[in-house]
Structures are given as C-alpha cells and as structure tokens.
Amino acid sequence: MEELIEKLKVQIIEQLNLEDMEPEDIDLEEPLFGDGLGLDSIDALELIVLLEKEYGIKIQNPKDGQKIFYSIKTMAEYITANQK
C-alpha cells in the first residue's frame, strides 16, 4: 500500500500538471477536490483515464468517482480492492 500511495502521488502530479508540487506536499487524507488540492471537473475525468491506463480499472458509473477520488487514501484502497 505504501508503495502504491507513493506511485499514485507521482502519477497524479504528472498527469494533472500539478507543477511546483512534490509528492510529500499531498496529504494522504486531504480532499483532492474543493478546498484541498483544488482539482476540478476536468481533473476528475483525467483521474478516470489514469485508473484505466495505469491500473486497468474501468469505472462503470462516473458518479462513483466522487467517493473513489476523495483522497489519495480512498483511491489507493479502491485500486487495491479492484485490481485484477
């Protein structure tokens, strides 16, 4: 899980162009959207692509995204539970 979390942070910074941000800047439980990292609706769509591309997980119902992408922790848990 630790390893996955670190990898996820790097991938998110890279994929969402979070310039000037280092992996250690992202708190494990901090909300990714809204006040937290300040991601928006296009970032949410990009995270869906990231899950599919990097982890082979296809989110069937985009509305589930809100829970899955709440924080790095919830994302990592979802990946662990759903990766084949």
């Binding site: 969402l16 296009i42 970032d43 769509l45 990009e46 692509v49 599919e52 591309k53």
Partner: peptide, 9 residues
Amino acid sequence: FFPSPSVFV
C-alpha cells in the same frame, strides 16, 4: 487508446 479529456478540451 487512452484519449485524455484535459488535452481534448
């Protein structure tokens, strides 16, 4: 095949 929404926009 992984079209990127943030590039497309």
